[in-house]
């Protein structure tokens, strides 16, 4: 029998030969850096603006048309702040700041790497890191996502195989998506805004 130790180097080399290659990698990275700088500032501004617009819309009793198109129907705000202590595992900084959305029941957090795009931007994934609160811990069973596009009733389902953790969540249209989340015996829900890529 071939010994594992003997086969391993050539096996790993064979795996490496299948690696995907992105042309213009340096420029892709620079674009991501520019976009993250913009999102850091704009994310907070957008959250504040959405909250402000929602509040004024509620006070004035005007119609849904007053809301920014992508955020129409959304109720969860993006926070740009220091993460709750229970959501900091894996971060090197003691008090990491991030853009995130809390579940309506406070049982889960969606940490957003950048703005979410639909269709997905060619050089940037829709990365969402799901963190379950200690009150609703993951048992590593799948995180099931049922996403409904506000104003249309369009429903799609996604699954993160090993439960809350890093994921890439692509959704089929821009707009406000209401996500019903279920992992193990726990549930929660939140809204995420997807915008067309710039």
């Amino acid at each position: 029998m071939n010994d594992v130790e003997d086969l391993l180097p050539e096996t790993l080399t064979a795996v490496g030969h299948d690696a995907p290659h992105i042309p213009g990698l340096a420029e892709v990275v620079r674009r991501r850096a520019r976009r993250q700088r913009a999102t850091g500032v704009a994310g907070l501004a957008a959250a504040v603006a959405t909250a402000a617009v929602t509040a004024s819309w509620a006070r004035a009793g005007t119609g849904d048309d007053d809301l920014p198109a992508a955020a129409r129907g959304c109720t969860s705000a993006v926070e740009n702040a220091v993460l709750p202590a229970w959501a900091r595992f894996g971060f090197s900084e003691p008090e990491p700041r991030a853009s995130f959305v809390r579940g309506s029941l406070g049982r889960i957090l969606a940490i957003l790497g950048t703005a979410l795009n639909s269709p997905p931007a060619p050089d940037q994934h829709n990365k969402v890191v799901w963190v379950a609160s200690p009150d609703a811990p993951s048992d590593r069973s799948p995180l099931r996502i049922t996403a409904t596009l506000a104003g249309t009733g369009q429903v799609v389902r996604r699954e993160v195989p090993n439960g809350p953790g890093p994921s890439i969540v692509d959704l089929p249209a821009p707009g406000c998506w209401h996500l019903d989340l279920a992992w193990g015996p726990h549930t929660d829900s939140l809204d995420l805004v997807y915008v067309p890529p710039r």
């Binding site: 595992f89 195989p161 090993n162 809350p164 890093p166 994921s167």
Partner: peptide
């Protein structure tokens, strides 16, 4: 860190 955080495709 990514693997520790509990998700793998």
């Amino acid at each position: 860190d990514w693997r520790r955080r509990g998700s793998s495709r």
